[in-house]
Computed example of a mutant assay.
Amino acid sequence: MSQQHIKSHSEDDDHNHHDEHHHDHSPHAHAGHDHAGHDHSSGAHSHAPSVTEANEKRIRIVFLMTAGYAAVQAVGGWMSGSLALIADAGHMVSDAAALLLALIAYRVAARAPDELRTYGFHRVRVLAALANGAALLLLVAWIAWEAVARFRSPTAVLAGPMLVVAIIGLCVNLAGAYVLLRGNQGDGNLRGALLHVLGDLLGSVGAIAAAIGIMLTGWTVLDPILSVLVAVLVVRSAWGLVSDSIFILLQGTPRGLDIKGVEADIAALPGIAEVGHLHAWTLTDTSIVATIHVTPAPGSDPLALPELVVARLKNQHAIEHATVQVDPPGGIQKPCANN
């Protein structure tokens, strides 16, 4: 008997996306997963995040504010001699980059696939995140080196200009938080952007405290101390970007997805005798792709299995794009222990 191949792709229902209206299809705690839809008119699969134009506009505004203030802060740090301001500018750059990546997800990743890039341009965002994270790690290394040098030989810091720049930063971050809080909190990208802005706000508060402390006590060592604390925040963000990007590029199993549990769940469906060769990976942080092999139970209709499995993977495991292959009984070969 020749092997029978029957394949099916998941198809999302058509949705009308209006401003301030966003659907979270995931039944599990997959934070920030805005699942993809499909372009039925062209037949091409679209994995772009579902997003409202209003939320995209809010993130664009906050990105411009954050990037603009990061430049002001870097110049202010250089002029005042404050390493803490320069370090916080790096933190602001990391958050501006995160906002930019969200905008890339909305725009670049939404471009239609072609014959050379059948999955579209989603990995552009991942590559940008990897480059951003690597650059920030280099910045942190420089900040740490400079901070050690300042501990050994304290450098004069102009606390007045430092305080002015830090207060401007506090105002910028408060305005950014206000803009994002008025958006639709069902949008994972917007929620992530809000967390970044709140982190920047705490950095501004720290810079204000350090400037006041230097003005009152003359302890310029407060500046490198704060710069190290801010650098720790940058390391956390940068390492997260690098590790997550590498994990996605290596097509690792999406975090929180239990492969054995999913296979057992599919095997329990009516009409299925065997399940195997389940492979799942993340296209971006917003779209999970999977392939799976099943064999029909005696008397079951093999043509009905792909639709059944696809629906289960989507509704119970947040896998929006699945390819199901139906093999003849005994056709699923178990992997060897040393493979």
Score class of each variant (00 low, 15 high):
residue 163 L to G: 02
residue 164 V to M: 06
residue 166 A to T: 00
residue 166 A to D: 02
residue 166 A to G: 02
residue 166 A to M: 01
residue 167 I to F: 08
residue 170 L to C: 08
residue 170 L to A: 13
residue 171 C to S: 12
residue 171 C to Q: 11
residue 171 C to T: 11
residue 175 A to V: 09
residue 176 G to I: 00
residue 176 G to L: 03
residue 177 A to G: 10
residue 178 Y to G: 09
residue 180 L to E: 01
residue 181 L to I: 04
residue 184 N to T: 05
residue 184 N to P: 00
residue 187 D to K: 02
residue 187 D to G: 02
residue 190 L to K: 03
residue 190 L to P: 01
residue 193 A to V: 01
residue 193 A to P: 00
residue 194 L to Y: 06
residue 196 H to P: 00
residue 198 L to S: 08
residue 198 L to G: 05
residue 199 G to H: 05
residue 199 G to Q: 09
residue 200 D to S: 08
residue 202 L to I: 13
residue 202 L to G: 12
residue 206 G to K: 03
residue 207 A to H: 04
residue 207 A to Q: 07
residue 210 A to S: 10
residue 211 A to W: 00
residue 213 G to W: 01
residue 214 I to Q: 03
residue 215 M to I: 10
residue 216 L to G: 06
residue 216 L to D: 05
residue 218 G to E: 01
residue 219 W to D: 14
residue 220 T to V: 13
residue 220 T to H: 11
residue 221 V to K: 14
residue 222 L to G: 04
residue 223 D to M: 03
residue 223 D to A: 04
residue 223 D to T: 01
residue 224 P to V: 04
residue 224 P to Q: 04
residue 224 P to M: 03
residue 225 I to G: 06
residue 226 L to I: 07
residue 226 L to M: 11
residue 227 S to M: 05
residue 228 V to F: 13
residue 230 V to G: 04
residue 231 A to F: 03
residue 232 V to S: 11
residue 236 R to I: 11
residue 236 R to S: 15
residue 237 S to R: 15
residue 239 W to L: 15
residue 240 G to M: 07
residue 243 S to N: 13
residue 243 S to I: 13
residue 243 S to E: 12
residue 244 D to F: 10
residue 245 S to F: 06
residue 245 S to P: 01
residue 245 S to M: 07
residue 245 S to G: 09
residue 245 S to E: 08
residue 246 I to F: 14
residue 246 I to K: 14
residue 246 I to C: 13
residue 247 F to S: 15
residue 252 G to Q: 13
residue 254 P to K: 12
residue 255 R to H: 15
residue 257 L to N: 06
residue 257 L to V: 12
residue 260 K to E: 15
residue 262 V to T: 04
residue 263 E to D: 04
residue 263 E to V: 02
residue 264 A to E: 10
residue 266 I to L: 07
residue 269 L to H: 03
residue 270 P to G: 02
residue 276 G to H: 01
residue 282 T to D: 10
residue 282 T to N: 13
residue 283 L to P: 00
residue 286 T to Y: 11
residue 287 S to M: 13
residue 289 V to S: 10
residue 289 V to D: 11
residue 291 T to S: 15
residue 291 T to V: 13
residue 292 I to N: 08
residue 292 I to M: 06
